[in-house]
């Protein structure tokens, strides 16, 4: 019984998320109950579904670019050729994670301008950090003996990377990508400030117009999105590793 509830709970939550986003009458009713006495409950200028799409686009583009670049950079600094950059990259990526995202965005705008592109750039810079960090620590934590053994059976450097090192570090790297994406979903709401669209739009509008229903709509949708993403990646990850754990 408990197990069934635990298994169904995320599915139920995700289903209610879908209804909330795509069914305006139901959303209106819910918000009316929660925040009585407002002029408007439904953000009219753009549909919530449209904002979700924009948000997904922001996260997907910046997140996948960050994942690719982060893993590549992490691999680079653990190769003999990039070994010299290892400490500096690791230090910068650790320190950089403490920068508030708003600050990163504020710095990106004068450099790149308003709109979609600077948001992607800011999100990219911000979400590449956990990927780099985890890629480096994943690759560094591999037993030197295993690499030696791979060399001993006649693997080339490339084969050692793709057949031994990356598969062994995959779990840690995947965890980094997961963290990066979840942070990205939350941070992407700030993109609205510089006109990138996304769920932040309705939050900003709610703040300006003093409409808590709007703020709640954007916040809860982004939260659902982050939760759903984390859940799905987690499931995929677990399926991938169940076989060989132990």
């Amino acid at each position: 019984m408990k197990r069934v509830v635990l298994a169904l709970l995320p599915v139920a939550l995700l289903a209610s998320f879908g209804v909330f986003v795509w069914n305006e009458p139901i959303r209106g009713t819910i918000l009316q109950i929660m925040f009585p006495g407002r002029l408007s409950y439904i953000y009219e200028r753009v549909s919530l579904a449209r904002l979700v799409y924009e948000h997904v686009a922001l996260v997907a583009i910046s997140g996948s670019l960050a994942a690719i670049a982060g893993v590549t950079l992490g691999v680079f600094v653990t190769r003999p050729i990039g070994r010299d950059f290892h400490p500096i990259v690791q230090d910068i990526s650790s320190v950089a994670q403490t920068f508030p995202p708003v600050a990163v965005l504020a710095l990106a705008v004068p450099a790149i301008g308003f709109g979609f592109a600077p948001s992607i750039a800011a999100l990219f810079i911000y979400s590449i950090l956990p990927v780099i960090n985890n890629t480096i620590s994943g690759l560094d934590s591999i037993d030197a003996g295993v690499v030696e053994a791979s060399r001993g059976v006649g693997m080339t450097r490339r084969q050692i990377l793709f057949l031994t090192e990356l598969p062994l570090a995959a779990r840690v790297i995947a965890a980094g990508i997961r963290t990066s994406l979840v942070i990205n979903v939350g941070t992407a709401t700030i993109g609205a400030v510089v006109g990138a669209g996304g769920l932040g739009t309705v939050i900003v509008s709610g703040l300006v117009r003093d409409n808590a229903a709007y703020v709640f709509t954007g916040a809860i949708t982004a939260a659902f999105f982050a939760f759903g993403l984390d859940y799905v990646i987690g499931r995929v990850e677990r399926r991938f590793y169940d076989a060989r754990s132990n």
Partner: peptide, 18 residues
């Protein structure tokens, strides 16, 4: 190529854990 043509047995860690 040389290593692929020579059998190599190492202490315990020799097997690839993944």
């Amino acid at each position: 190529q040389l290593r692929r043509g020579i059998g190599y047995v190492i202490q315990s860690v020799g097997l690839l854990p993944h």
